[in-house]
């Protein structure tokens, strides 16, 4: 009787299917799917639709697997940050060991299946990306250097290169520029977030630039990175994957982003606190649109080229 009472008073901590899916970080996965898809579509060689579909699916699965490994390792800091405390492991719905085993199994499955579906170069690239995100970024850089976002951003920048490698079996200047676009975009995107999610990273003792070098320095670095990003984004427009549509979009988007970086740099903390970080939040939201529209424009160029328009 007393056992029965005890069971009903404590809610069952058994995971539902959605909890395991949440371990794969679906929102990050959507960015991986989109950029990998664009990388595949803009490549000069084409692949049969089913091969392309399967390749994107397994790239997404690999991205999800690295997300599960990240959540397994970061459960302790996720627990103290408001933004992440509801994740499956800190909330007690999924056991850490389950997340680790899901991550490892899905990593293996996604790499082997990508190799069988497309080619082993792309599969090796995916394996390296998972390793880079789970080990280099999550286990090493994230807690040890304020440059964590800069170098770790490479993990998020590899998917368009993998998509390109699925079609071509290699690397080229175009795929490197797509990589550089996401790589250079990541720091201003995350630092804008770090400026208004201040207490979260402080509490978790993650050495974000805002904590280690100070907020004025972070503001300066956001502007520096938006300035460094602009030529990279525009250069992609001058290669075989670019064209007038992309170039026009890149020029406008980069002008707006640099203006956003300038606005953040010009402000001090008092002004930011006074309007609840309005500019920082605006630039963060725009940065999402910025990346989506760049890759959307590349896709548009590929579509136009296929009907004899677009491109140079």
């Amino acid at each position: 009787m007393s056992d029965f009472t005890a069971n009903t008073s404590t809610p069952p901590q058994e995971a539902g299917f959605g909890d395991y899916f949440a371990l794969l970080k679906p929102r990050v996965m959507s960015l991986v799917v989109f950029t990998a898809f664009v990388g595949l579509m803009v490549a000069p060689q084409s692949v049969p639709p089913m091969v392309g579909f399967a390749a994107i699916l397994f790239i997404a699965l690999g991205g999800g697997a690295s997300g599960a490994l990240n959540m397994w390792y970061d459960a302790d800091i996720d627990r103290v940050m408001a933004r992440t405390s509801g994740r499956p492991i800190p909330s007690g719905r999924v056991a850490p060991g389950e997340a680790l085993s899901l991550g490892l199994w899905l990593s293996t499955l996604s790499v082997v299946m990508l190799g069988l579906a497309a080619n082993w170069f792309a599969a090796g690239f995916l394996a390296f990306t998972i390793f880079f995100y789970a080990v280099i970024y999550t286990m090493w850089l994230k807690r040890s250097t304020p440059q964590n976002i800069v170098i770790g951003g490479a993990a998020g920048a590899f998917p368009p290169m993998i998509g390109w490698a699925v079609a071509t079996g290699g690397v080229s200047v175009e795929s490197l520029l797509m990589f550089a676009l996401v790589f250079m975009w990541t720091p201003p995107h995350f630092w804008a977030l770090a400026l208004f999610m201040k207490s979260d990273y402080d509490k978790a003792k993650v050495p974000m630039l805002t904590v280690t070098a100070g907020r004025p320095h972070t503001r300066r670095m956001i502007l520096v990175y938006t300035l460094l990003l602009a030529p990279v984004a525009i250069a992609a427009g001058l290669t075989s994957i670019g064209g007038p549509v992309y170039l026009a979009a890149a020029v406008v988007l980069n002008l707006v982003f640099v203006k956003g970086g300038y606005d953040i740099w010009r402000r001090d903390e008092a002004a930011a606190r006074a309007d609840d970080y309005r500019t920082e939040k605006k630039v963060f939201r725009f940065s999402l649109l910025y990346l989506f529209l760049h890759f959307g424009a590349l896709l548009a160029e590929a579509g136009l080229r296929s009907v004899g328009l677009g491109g140079w």
């Binding site: 069952p12 058994e14 995971a15 539902g16 299917f17 959605g18 395991y20 899916f21």
Partner: peptide, 15 residues
Amino acid sequence: THEIHNRRLGRNIGV
């Protein structure tokens, strides 16, 4: 049927 049974059913269908 307890809530946990529904959750298990959902998980099994998902798998």
